[in-house]
C-alpha cells in the first residue's frame, strides 16, 4: 500500500476504499435460491388477488348456498398437508447425510400426504357439487371459492409432480447428496404451498363461515 493511500481519520471504511478488499473471496447468493424466492414472491402476488377477490365478495352472494351452510373444516386434509412440510424436512436431513433409503421413505411419505390432500379435496368437492349444489356459476361464493381453492390445488398438483420427479430420479440413482440444494428448492416450493394453504384455510373455512 502506497503512502498516499494510507487511511486517515474520517475516511470511508477500508472495505469500500481499499482495493485489496476485493482480494477476499467473492461470494454471491446461489442463483437457484434467489430464483425460487423470486418465483414464490410472484406466486404470492397471484394468490393475493384471488384472496382479495374472495374477501371482497364475502357475504355478497345474492342467493345460497352460503359458506356457513355448506363448508366443513377440512381437518384431515389440513393435517395431512401441514405434516408433509415436516416429513419433507426429514427427507432433506436424510439426503444430506447420504441416506438414500431414508430419503426415499421420508420423501415418499411427503408424496403420499400430498396425494391424500388432493384425494380429500376431491371427495369434498364431489360432496359440495352433488349434494350441496355449490357450483362455480351458482353465486359469487361459488365463483371465488372454487377459483381460490382450485388455484391452490393446482399448485399442490405441480408440487406433487416435482416431488414424484425427484423420488423417481432418486430411485434410479440420479440424485445423491450432491444435489441436496436442487432438492431443497423443491421443498421450499412445497413449504410455500403449505403456507398458502394456511392463509386459504383461515380465510375460507374460518373467517368466511362466520361472516355469512
Amino acid at each position: 500500500m502506497n503512502a498516499d493511500e494510507q487511511l486517515k481519520v474520517g475516511d470511508p471504511t477500508p472495505m469500500i476504499n481499499d482495493p485489496s478488499a476485493t482480494e477476499e473471496p467473492w461470494v454471491l447468493p446461489s442463483p437457484r435460491k434467489v430464483g425460487i424466492i423470486t418465483l414464490i414472491v410472484s406466486e404470492s402476488a397471484l394468490f393475493t388477488i384471488f384472496v382479495v377477490a374472495y374477501v371482497f365478495y364475502m357475504g355478497k352472494s345474492l342467493n345460497g348456498p352460503f359458506p356457513a351452510d355448506v363448508l366443513e373444516f377440512p381437518l384431515f386434509g389440513t393435517i395431512a398437508l401441514l405434516s408433509s412440510s415436516f416429513t419433507v424436512i426429514g427427507a432433506e436431513v436424510m439426503l444430506r447425510r447420504g441416506h438414500r433409503l431414508g430419503f426415499l421413505i421420508w420423501w415418499g411419505l411427503t408424496l403420499l400426504l400430498g396425494a391424500y390432500f388432493v384425494y380429500f379435496t376431491a371427495v369434498e368437492w364431489l360432496h359440495l357439487i352433488n349434494v350441496k349444489n355449490l357450483t362455480l356459476d351458482v353465486n359469487v361464493f361459488g365463483t371465488t371459492f372454487y377459483s381460490l381453492v382450485g388455484l391452490h390445488l393446482t399448485h399442490v398438483f405441480i408440487g406433487l409432480l416435482l416431488l414424484s420427479l425427484v423420488w423417481v430420479l432418486t430411485l434410479f440413482g440420479k440424485i445423491s447428496s450432491d444435489h441436496h440444494e436442487h432438492v431443497e428448492m423443491v421443498s421450499w416450493y412445497w413449504h410455500f404451498v403449505d403456507v398458502i394453504w394456511i392463509v386459504v384455510v383461515t380465510v375460507v373455512y374460518i373467517i368466511s363461515v362466520r361472516v355469512n
Binding site: 414472491v41 410472484s42 388477488i49 377477490a53 365478495y57 355478497k60 352472494s61 362455480l136 356459476d137 377459483s147
Partner: peptide
C-alpha cells in the same frame, strides 16, 4: 414480478367469467 401476476389473475378471472359461468365481473349475478 409483483405487478404482473395480478394482471394474469385478471385474465384468468375474465376467461372463467366468459366460459365457465363465473361471476367475478358479472354485475347481474352479484
Amino acid at each position: 414480478v409483483i405487478a404482473m401476476p395480478p394482471f394474469s389473475a385478471c385474465q384468468i378471472m375474465l376467461t372463467m367469467d366468459r366460459y365457465l359461468g363465473a361471476a367475478f365481473f358479472d354485475t347481474q349475478a352479484g
